[in-house]
Amino acid sequence: MLRLPDFQYHAPRTVEEAVALKVKHGANAAFVAGGTDLLPNMKRRIRKCGHLVDVSHIDELRSAGAFEGGLRLGAAVSLEEAASNEAVRTVCPAYAEAALLVATPTIRRMGTVGGNLCLDTRCLFYNQSYEWRKGIDFCMKADGTICRVAESSPKCIAVSSSDTAPVALAAGATIELCGPGGKRAVSADSFYLGDGIDYMAKKEDELLTALVIPDQTGAQSAYVKVRARGSIDFPVIGVAVWMRRRSSDAPVEDARVVLGAVFPDPREVPAAAEALIGRALDAESIRDAADAAFRAAKPVDNTDGALSWRKEMIRVSTKRALERLGSAR
């Protein structure tokens, strides 16, 4: 049986207590809520933490609902709760769609809004047991020095595998953090850094407390996920699209196209948005946007699914996501 290494468990009741515990134990502590990402990594001896700071019992992280015309989702709200929340389904249905596509029903009940945003980047060379990784002489993300996917790569290219993060970016969301120095908010766009190891702007001592999605009046969004099976799997491609227009035949005023499961971060493709802005959403503009997304993508061999196919699926998924918006009004 695969077992956890030794650790001490803490269940603080306030954000301040949680942060204080983290400060006290430093890098030897980790925040945890659902545990569905961290615990497997601990069992595989990828993550070593002597202290688990469980934030799932902190009341202020557990509320979700309408907020300033948009939404505010506490970090410890489960993905299942978020997906079935009436306000979420009304204001930003794409977020609900994405949350419902995560893993399995049980994991969605355990996993949280904050956890999915903080999901460790993934790689078939990394999400393996200590013994397996020893067989490839480790990789730079854990215990080793070079990247096994692309050996000349100066940085880790493990993949952002969150389903909800691309939607957060596309919807222009803000992420709230709380650290020893107090609270701050960063745009989802600047939260992710594009490096497989240092993949998010959250400082070591900071706790992600909420996801804030701004007023979506007049906006539409959609998320398309590609994975091997109908359930369980992480995305091998995720595409979130967002746009604003006055009516279904009016030109697109503003748009964002964000790719998931390709880069170490959910990656916005400005060229795809530009292909839409100022034009009606029709077969032609959709094709141009999908082509732009396709050109921007550089999948590498670190998830399941063949590379060339995954790249092609970006085109198809972008198209399908945009077509859904087209048919939505």
Binding site: A228, R229, G230, S231, I232, D233, D304
Partner: peptide, 8 residues
């Protein structure tokens, strides 16, 4: 290693 789920 992909084993079909109920949805497959």
């Amino acid at each position: 290693y992909k084993s079909p789920t109920t949805l497959d």
